[in-house]
Design a protein around this nucleic acid. Sequence first.
DNA 1: TGAAAGTCAATATC
DNA 2: GATATTGACTTTCA
Length: 413
Amino acid sequence: TPKTSASCSPAPESPLSSAEESVNGLAGDPLAPHSSSLKLASEDPSGGESQPGTPLPIPGHSGLSVQEMVAMSPELDTYAITKKVKEVLTDNNLGQRLFGETILGLTQGSVSDLLARPKPWHKLSLKGREPFVRMQLWLQDPHSVEKLMDMKRLEKKAYMKRRLSSLSDNHSVDMGLMGQDYIQGSHSPGHQHLKKARVVLGPEEKEALKRAYQEKPYPSPKTIEELASQLNLKTSTVINWFHNYRSRIRRELFIEEIQAAGGLGPGSEGGSPSLRGSKSGEGDSCDGTESEGTVETRQGLGLGLEDHRGACKDDMEVESEAGGSNNSPDQFDCTTSGLVGAGSSCGQGGLGLFNFTEASSSGSASSTNIPASGPARNPRDNNLRKKKAANLNNIIHRLEKAASKEDPSEWEF
DNA sequence: TGAAAGTCAATATC
DNA sequence: GATATTGACTTTCA
C-alpha cells in the first residue's frame, strides 16, 4: 500500500485542520460543519458499540438527514477522498473495521472494497454516495482521528474486560471467543446458526465462466442453464457470478482508465477517478451516447477534492487538461491528481464539502471514449485499448446479429 | 421487471 | 489480526 506524505497535510494529530480552516471560512454555508464534532459511539451514553447499519450521525448537521446532505452535496472526487482516508487510517494505525462500523455503518469487507475501488461520483446512486459524504465529513473533522483512537482504546478495554470476566468466571467455555464462532448478532449458543456453506468456485470453473463471459457478457437463460450443468453449479450461482463479474470488471476498468488517463502506472498516485467515468466492461462502455461535462474544478475543500466530470473524455484531452502526471504524490493535499482549480489552495480559501461551485455538467459534448488514434502511452494503456476494442467488437457483433434477425424476440442482448 | 448498485459476511491472503 | 476477495442477497433504478 503506497503511503504518501502530503507536503502540506496537517500533522497526524490534527489530520485535517486545513480542511477545517477552509470550511470555517464559509460563512453562510448552511452545510459547513462549523462546530464539527463527531459523535462517536464512545460518547454514546449507552456505551453500546456501533454496528454496521447504524452509522454515526453527521456531525454539525443535525438538522439534515444524511440523505438530504447527500442530495445537496456537490460532486465529490471519490478517488481523492478514499485515498486520503486510506492515508489517515494507515498513518494512525486505524483499522477498516473500526472505521467502517463507526463512521460509515459498513462492514470491513465493504470498506475495503470501497477504499480500493471507489466508483466515480456521477456513477453512484444517492445511497452509494452516502459513504463518501460521511468520509468527507470525517476528514473534515479535526478531531476525527483522536476520536477513533479513543474508540479503539475503549474497544480494547471492553474486550479485555470481557476476557477477564470470562476467565474469572472459570467457565468451561470461553464466551469471549465463542461469540466469534457464531454469526454476528447471535452469540447465543442456543442459536448456533447453520452457516450457509459458501460456494467457492474452482479455478477451472472460474476460467470457464470467464470464457463464457468473453463470448457473451449477457448470457441467455439457456446458456446459463448449460453452463450450470456443465460446471455442476446451481443456475443461481452462475447468474450471480455474471452479475458480480460484470459489476466488478466495470469498476476495475474504471480504475485502469483513471490510471491510464493520467499516464500512470499501477499503484501510481495522482489520477482522479472522476476525470472520466465510463461504463465499461461488458460492452456498454462509453460509446458516444453518454453525455459528459466539461472538465472543470468543482470544489476544493482544501483537500484537493475537486471533481471532474468527463465520462467519455478523450484521453489526450483529459491528460492535457488534467495537467498530466507530473505532480508528485507528495503534493496530494494541494494538488490531488494535478487537478487544482481556482479556489483550491490547500486549506486556504478552499471550499467546503457543501460549498457549491459552478456546476459544469450541463454543457455536454459527447465524444467517444476510445480515442480513434493516438499512441498508447504504456502497456496498461494498450491493454485497456484492447479491452475496449474487444467490448466494442462485442457490441458490434451483437448488433449485427440482432440486425440479421427480423423478430426482436430473437435478439440477444 | 431485469439489470445495476450496494452491501454482507465467509473465507482467503498477507 | 488486518485486509482483500467474492458468492449471495437486497435495494434501487430505468
